[in-house]
Each structure stands twice: as structure tokens, then as C-alpha cells.
Design a protein around this nucleic acid. Sequence first.
DNA 1: TGTTAGCACTCATTAGAAGCGAGTGCTAAA
DNA 2: TTTAGCACTCGCTTCTAATGAGTGCTAACA
Lengths: 350, 350
Amino acid sequence: MSANKWGDGMLSERQLYILRVLIDDYIKHVEPVGSRTISKREDITYSPATIRNELADLEDLGFLEKTHTSSGRIPSEKGYRFYVDHLLPSLSVSPNEMDRTELLSTEKVQEAEVLFDQSAKILSDLTNYTSVVLGPNALDMKLRHMQIIPLSSQMAVAIFVTNTGHVENRQIVLPNSIEPSDLEKLVNILNERLAGVRLIELNSRIQMELSAVFKKHLKDYQNMSVFLDQLLLWSKKEKLFYGGKTNMLSQPEFRDLDKVRPLLDFLETRDLMEKLVSSTEKGVTVKIGTENEHEAMKNCSVINASYTMHGKHIGTISLIGPTRMEYKRVISLLDSLSREMTNRLNDFSK
Amino acid sequence: MSANKWGDGMLSERQLYILRVLIDDYIKHVEPVGSRTISKREDITYSPATIRNELADLEDLGFLEKTHTSSGRIPSEKGYRFYVDHLLPSLSVSPNEMDRTELLSTEKVQEAEVLFDQSAKILSDLTNYTSVVLGPNALDMKLRHMQIIPLSSQMAVAIFVTNTGHVENRQIVLPNSIEPSDLEKLVNILNERLAGVRLIELNSRIQMELSAVFKKHLKDYQNMSVFLDQLLLWSKKEKLFYGGKTNMLSQPEFRDLDKVRPLLDFLETRDLMEKLVSSTEKGVTVKIGTENEHEAMKNCSVINASYTMHGKHIGTISLIGPTRMEYKRVISLLDSLSREMTNRLNDFSK
DNA sequence: TGTTAGCACTCATTAGAAGCGAGTGCTAAA
DNA sequence: TTTAGCACTCGCTTCTAATGAGTGCTAACA
């Protein structure tokens, strides 16, 4: 049933059953579960004393913990991990949940950004946890068209449109001595030669292939080269879309201000969040407590689901909640929601 | 000293002085101030009993409140209002504060967005309150250049560049029957005729002046008209830049979760925030407690300062904190910070 | 008449004590 | 192997008493 990595030996059927019942109960009521509570269930035929013995064993094995000497048991991180990996009832979305994720699809959403935003909102509404959608990195998209529009003698706006319709723009300083005709030629060359190249690769492609072309066509190549570097200096900025940022405040385990504060601060820190929520794996992944490798997240679990476009992983939708989460419900929800997002995204590009 | 609107008669010098001392003390220590505390100050020569009489009078006049029958006094909303309007020591920025706002100016900031973001961060760092910068409404900016870039046979991206270098873009559905040549002509006409017109006015200008031109040059005018409406359907979206979103959590008056929650939720609600922070007045304004006209803000004050470009009010920088704020410091800070922003912005457009 | 000392009173806050109850571990018997 | 029984632990709630910072009022004083 379980591999040896879960302690010295295998767990008995009864232990597995008790463990599952206990975690289910704890997830539902968020209170330490005692032997009596378990024995009172219809499907349990043993007395509290017997249960107690089993619980003591499960605690020794590290699946359970006590909050104090005479308290009931709560699942440990290891317990949750085991629960998620081995005890989760087979996944299936309940019909009425499915309705809600279809709600997403019936609304007319034109732009991807709106889709991401809505998905995050729906997910957090449905779960009362905090959700985050990590948008696709525009720099991984392919160049469709670029343009430079002068604002004044010194300043201009550079615009890059990707195949997905995303627009990147930035203001740039024009070199003093630049020739208007050179600028025009530059833009033309870039558009002719680099359409279909990923934004992030533009620079290296230019280095490799186009310096000769530039030298030939542009009068002041030296000057232009510096300018090009400025033009194509990307700062990566994936977009994050949040839902239910303050939902953590209503979770009983975070009723304490000193405990929520680090959490909320974490949520506001872009790069930490990007790291937390980035995932290269396809499908749904679950990270529990300290697996998230950040102090502020030690009492949280993060469920991550990737969405794709043309089969390629381009972003994630995630849920952040207390380690005691309704894993079953939440995982299936994320699974269907991410599929839905994938569908919608691929509809766009038709 | 004070007009009659402040109660039945004027306040005596002593009352004014006591009121000021009390509010200063309360702002500093955030605890009800008693008669003994006040009388212990060097510059106060009266006994606690005398002070008590004055305090009772000030309370009758509505400037002070008690938290319970035998507690010290705290300022009422009216008290704060009076304090801000009449008792604030003349404004002057202390030298070391000035250094910090100059910090802003020494860094090289190219784009307005970065400037706004930095300003908000600096302000919240300096005050430990929450700050918000309301960015300029791009729709009030003037059209510099527009363009339509096709993505597929049906979809395209429309791009509008303003005189300030801001780029507005949106994805649009191309009419089935559209002629490529018509599209090109349309864009040309718009660029020729409407450069310099504020984005928000584009539509009405077209209605008024250009329908004849369109009818003349475009083959399928009917179809095009619907398309134009879609193209120029602006949804106003001023940008908000936040600093110190979670700072409220460290304010003693919001130590209670049930009190912070509405506040944080309020901060996350775009339209409420836009309304709160929008101001048509120039200079610094102070709104105290219920003057902000929202339940969640009833224990907060909002200090608002506008910044300008070419003398025109285009946005605000605001600070949200508890009603007990260091008004003096905060007002002068906002004053100098908004000036600094104005300077920087006008430097951009040189 | 304005000021102040004195005093009774109020009320939030804190600490301690007592009782309750949900839970445990251990032992011995079925 | 299971279970009944029992002593014990510990968190939580309730109650009480003590503390102290503050008030309002009165009466005396300058």
C-alpha cells in the first residue's frame, strides 16, 4: 500500500483508515481530533482505547501531532503529504462545481488579461482562499510587429506587438546624432528579419545575424548599436493576477495578526510570489508547508496548476491556503479551471 | 481666533493651548490623555483640577471625547478638524526629511510609472502608513499616433500613443467584410485629423467632424462605423500605485482583525479607492474620518496632494492612516513630495 | 472670581483561583 | 487483541479581588 519511505514499515489497513478519517475530520472542523470522536463514527467499530493506541503509533511514525500533552491529534506536514499522495479519494468534480467553472466560459472574454483576472476571482470566491494567476511571460511570445514613435527630439516610444496580441512598450532616449532615415531603416530591418522571433531572443539574434546587415545599411552603426542595446533591454515582468487577497484573514489559523502580517506581506512581494507560483511541471502540484521554502508560508499549502497554449506550458493558476485545506475539492477545482483556461486561450488564437 | 462655527463662542487662549497639547500628546502616544499628564508639562502652570475643568468644557464643545466615564480624553473628529485647520504649527519640512524626498530625485527615473511607484513606496516607508498614487488618466492625454496591427484574419491590436508617451492598446475584432485598404485609410485619416486630440474626445470629434470624410473615402462606411465604436470604446482605468499596503496592520488602533479586514478590503477595491483618492483641488487636502464617506474609512484620515503637468492637475498622491496621524509632518511631506513629482514630470517632457 | 486641594467614585486591566471538560496514557481484565 | 476503567494533564472559562489611572464635585483659598 505504501512504500517504505513512509517510516519503518507499512501502515495497516486500519491505520490508513483512521489516518484518513482523522485528517478528513480535522480539515472539516479545524480542531484537534480525539479518539472518541473517531470511534463515534458509524463505520468505526473499535473503542476509543483501541483508536488511542493506533493514534499513538501514527504519532510515533510522524503522521500526527499533538498541540499539547492531553489534546487530540492534528495532522503533521508528513501526514498531509501522505494524505495527498495516497489517501485522497479519487478525483472527480462534483456537478455543481462544474457549473461554476463553466460560468467562466459563458461570459465573453476577449482579452487574456480579463480571463486571468476572472479566473483568479472565481477561484478565490469558490474556495475562500487566496488565488494567483501567473500570466504568460510576454518575452516568450513572438514578435509580430515593432515600431518606434518619436515623442520629441530626444524621446520616443518603442512598441512591440507579439503574436498573442500582447503589447510591450517602453520609452527610450534617442541618440543625439541619430538620423531619422537610419531609425526608419532600423525598424524596417527588424520587422522584416525578426518577425516570429521570441522577444527575449531578439537581442542575441541581432548579435548573431544582423550586425552585417546593419553595418551595410545604416550610416552611423556605432551609435546605433548602443541604442539597440537600450531598446532591447528587457526586464522580465510576468503579470500576477490576484483573487481574495484578504481571504487569509478569515481563516481560523490566521486569526492572529502577527501570523497574517508576514503572509500578507509575502503576497505583496512580487518576486517571492513569482518564485512561489512558478512551476515547470504540467498538471496539478501540491506543496505543503515548509515545502514552499519560505518562513511565511510554513503554515500554508500551495496548489499549482499549469495552463497551456498550443500544448506549451505558459503560466499557472495557484491557490494559497492553510495546510489544512480541502485538498480533494480544491485540486479537482484547479484541475478543471486550468483546463478551462487552456481551452479559452486556444480559442482566442483561432 | 476661531470663527463662530466652532461652537457657541470663541475658545480662550488657554483652551486652545490645552487642546493643542492634548492632541499632540495623543498623536504621539495613542493613549487617552488625562489632566495630570497635561499639567506635568513644563509650559503648563495650572493644576490638574483646573485642566479638568477646561477639558470638561472642551468636551462639551465637542472637541474631545472619552472612551469611558473615567478615562482620559481623546480628540473627536471635530477636534482633529480644528487642529488641522487652526492649531497646526506653521508648515516647514525638517531638513532630514527633505533629504529623503530628494532621494527620489537623484535616482534616474525614465518613465512616469516608475516615478509613481517609487513615490508611493518612499511615502509609505517614511510614514509607515499606506500610500497611493493615482496616475494620470491616459484618456486625458492627447493622441500622438495610432495604429492597427492585424493578428489574424479576425483579430487585431489597436494601439494609441499619447503625447506623454503612454501607450493604450486593446484587442479588437475585425469586421468580417472589412477591406484592408479601408482599414489603412481609416488609420491614416485618424492620424492626420486627430493628432493632438484627447483620447476621451476622439469619439465625439469623429461624430462631429469626420463622418463626412469617412463617407467620402471609405467603401463600406456602415460597417466601419460599428467598428469605430468598438475601437474607441474607452473604459476609464486610472492606474493606482500602492505603497505599504499592509502597514495598517501595525497601527495600534487596527490591532483587531475585524477592524483591519474592511480596511484592507477597501484598499483592494479599485473604484472605491479611485473615488477616495481623486481630488480636483490643488495643493494638500485633509479628510478626516467620516468625511471620507465610507464606513471602512471612518477611523482613517486621507491626506491628498495633487501633482501637475504644465500647470494642469493630472493626478494625486495620497496617504491613508488612522485619524490620529502626525498631520504636521505628513502634510509637509506630501506637499514637498508632490512638488517633487511635478518637477520630475515636467522634466520628462523637455 | 478663578484656582486648587481633597475625596469619593468609575471603570479598564490584570492576576489568581476554581471548576469544567476533552483528551491522554497506562493497567488489568475479558 | 480489545476494551473498560482510572488517574492525570492541560487549555479554557468564569469569578473575584486588587490596582491604578482617571474623573466630577465640593469647599476652601488668593
